[in-house]
């Protein structure tokens, strides 16, 4: 299992699409930094992963004023402790930027 970390929104650049294309069925995706803006786009393909495989870093969501929007999406909000734990639990972490 691989942890994919995405730090840019689906609306800019190639990173979001590349992250999804590299993901195997068992992998998980964590949105950090500007990646959390993905919660604004309900149509984004990544939402199909669901809260078991799609996480967003709560600090970055909160800092950008997206808490209520994120809570309405199928994304699990996690803290930095969970980010670290995920990197330890998964075999590999890949950052998409």
């Amino acid at each position: 299992m691989i942890l994919h970390v995405l730090n840019c929104p689906p609306s800019s650049g190639q990173a979001a699409a590349q992250a999804l294309s590299a993901m195997a069925p068992g992998d998980v995706l964590l949105l950090i930094e500007d990646g959390v803006y993905a919660v604004l786009d309900a149509e984004w393909e990544g939402h199909r992963l669901g809260p078991e495989k799609l996480y967003a870093l709560e600090d970055d969501v909160h800092a950008r004023g997206l808490m209520s929007i994120a809570n309405a999406q199928k994304v699990a909000l996690v803290g930095m402790e969970t980010f670290v734990a995920l990197t330890a639990q998964t075999r590999q972490t890949i950052s998409w930027y």
Binding site: N7, I32, E33, D34, D59, M80, E81, F83, V84, A85, A88, Y97
Partner: peptide
Amino acid sequence: SQAPHSALRFARTLLAQGH
């Protein structure tokens, strides 16, 4: 970029977890 800030937060957290 936010990269150094994220890295520092990640570093402090992993140390707090005993890594």
